[in-house]
Simulated assay, not measured.
Amino acid sequence: MKQILLFPTLALLAGCTQQAGENAPAEVSRSGESRLAAELADYRQTGEALSCVNSRDLQGNRSVGEEAIIFEGTGRRIYVNRPAAGCPSLSGGRALRIRTPSTRFCRGDIVSVFDPVSGIDYGSCGLGDFTPYKRNSR
């Protein structure tokens, strides 16, 4: 099994704080969704969600809260991945470690979020489908 490390190209500094009460998870989710919508404002979806993408077609990644991971692709393309149960945020210089038996990242592959300097592990999650987007022409 291969381990591939992906360091974020851009660490988002905005953090989420969870408030006490039953509405807190829904508020965090809405906040993450609005941040994702802002990230995708200059992009358009270019096809159906893919179960796998080639790792050589990816150049970096960043998270949008715990709801989504944006993988930077080649040629003005990005892939949005929404782990079903969420995933720890990549903020603060954290990176992804992906365990995969191939050169492709696929739905169900396990990713760990960790600090590459200290080695502290912040948790892991299973990847979802990869939805392709392309930057709009200007």
Rank of each mutant, 00 (worst) to 15 (best):
Y43M: 01
E48K: 14
L40T: 03
S112W: 12
T74Q: 15
C125S: 06
F7Q: 09
T46K: 00
T46S: 06
G73P: 04
R56E: 09
P8F: 03
G65L: 10
S29A: 14
A85H: 05
G75S: 10
T131Y: 05
D121W: 03
V64C: 05
E66T: 15
T17V: 12
G65F: 06
G15I: 13
C106P: 00
A49V: 04
V28W: 04
G65I: 04
A95H: 07
K2F: 08
R97H: 02
T17F: 09
V53R: 15
L90V: 03
R56F: 08
G123E: 04
F130C: 10
L12P: 01
L10P: 01
G123A: 06
D109S: 05
A41M: 11
P8A: 13
L13A: 12
I98K: 09
S34V: 07
G75M: 05
R56G: 01
R107I: 12
D57L: 14
M1L: 11
Q19P: 01
N61T: 15
S89M: 11
A85P: 00
S29M: 10
G73M: 07
C106L: 08
E48G: 10
R135D: 00
R107S: 13
F7E: 11
F130W: 11
G75T: 06
G47N: 09
S89I: 09
V113T: 12
S137P: 05
P8D: 11
S31E: 10
N54D: 12
D129R: 09
I120F: 05
G21W: 06
V64W: 02
G73R: 05
P116R: 06
R97M: 14
S124M: 04
L58I: 15
Q18A: 09
L6W: 07
V28L: 13
D57M: 11
N81D: 10
G32Q: 15
V117C: 03
S118L: 09
F105R: 05
Q59T: 14
N81F: 02
R135H: 02
R44C: 02
P83R: 06
S124I: 02
C125V: 05
S34D: 14
A49H: 01
E67D: 13
E39S: 09
S34Q: 14
G75I: 01
R104H: 08
I70S: 01
E67H: 11
C87L: 06
L12H: 07
I70H: 02
G15T: 13
F114I: 14
L6A: 07
T103W: 11
E66K: 07
N61I: 10
A20E: 10
V113E: 11
G123P: 01
M1F: 09
S29G: 05
E66F: 04
T46R: 02
R135K: 15
R135N: 00
G21R: 03
T9L: 12
D115L: 11
S137Q: 14
V113G: 08
G21Y: 05
Y133N: 02
G92R: 13
Q3E: 15
N81G: 00
L50Y: 01
Y122M: 07
S51N: 08
T103L: 15
A95D: 05
F71L: 15
S118F: 03
E48M: 08
S63N: 07
A49E: 11
